[in-house]
Design a protein around this nucleic acid. Structure first.
Length: 238
DNA sequence: GCGACAG
DNA sequence: ATCTTGTCGC
């Protein structure tokens, strides 16, 4: 199957093979963009409509220094892959890449709603997006997935390692006092410490980064608009 | 074999 | 992800 002009897996076996092929291209050495250096950061997210298998993605770009919104874009489409734990990228990436393509300028950093290296095969959504676009990326997830962690301290900024056995794959990071931690992992071309620093800056008021909160709202709106006005589902005729 | 399982 | 009432707290 072909999506966005590139070959896309049609089975779980092909998807797994693709992850194992691409994972060696992940850059774990680069420091990544620094907030003080200027530039932009984009938050991306996807919303689904269970009845029509339609989905909508959004990319919201913030100024890295001021955190002001500078641009945003959306893309809608049809789910081309089911949700399977460990294969999330094959479901979400097509519309996300479309939304990123619609921006006037490529961002210097992307924050994903999910995991990066914290993944059964060390190639989660944020790694996949980073390798395909070449843009530094990391993931901020809301649940521990299959990993272990100790409860971080109660204060904003407190963290504990996220572990896969004895291997550190990310951090459980407290972004707000007495609020559940988020789970940060490196995706591509950025350091874990720097990814956490960006996460804290972006989550100055709420649990989740402002970038993903904005993207979440935008893709929901885009989906609602697509379901309401977009192409009709051929169930009732007309 | 049975559960768990990013979104 | 999405479905959902009430409830607690600033």
């Amino acid at each position: 199957m072909t999506t966005r002009g590139i070959e896309w897996p049609a089975s779980t076996a092909e998807a797994v093979a693709e992850q194992e092929r691409l994972r060696d291209l992940v850059d774990l050495g680069a420091a990544g963009p620094d907030p003080a250096a200027g530039g932009t950061v984009a938050g991306v997210d996807v919303a689904y409509d269970e009845n029509s298998d339609r989905l909508a993605a959004a990319a919201v770009v913030l100024d890295l220094a001021t955190l002001e919104v500078v641009e945003q874009a959306t893309a809608t489409g049809r789910a081309a892959f089911p949700y399977l734990p460990g294969l999330l990228a094959f479901r979400e990436l097509p519309p996300v890449l479309d939304a990123l393509d619609r921006l006037s300028a490529r961002p210097d950093l992307v924050v994903c709603d999910g995991y990066g290296i914290a993944h059964p095969r060390r190639f989660g959504l944020a790694c996949h997006l980073g390798v395909l676009t070449g843009i530094p990326a990391f993931g901020v997830a809301k649940t521990p997935f299959v990993f272990d962690h100790e409860e971080p301290g109660p204060r904003r900024g407190d963290w504990t390692p996220l572990l896969d056995g004895d291997e550190v794959v990310g951090r459980a990071l407290r972004t707000q006092e007495s609020v559940k931690p988020v789970f940060v992992s490196v995706g591509h071309a950025i350091t874990l410490a720097k990814a956490c620093a960006h996460t804290l800056r972006l989550a100055s008021r709420y649990r989740l980064p402002e970038s993903t909160r904005r993207a979440d709202r935008l893709c929901r709106d885009a989906l609602a608009a697509a379901v309401a006005g977009g192409s009709r589902t051929p169930l009732t005729g007309a």
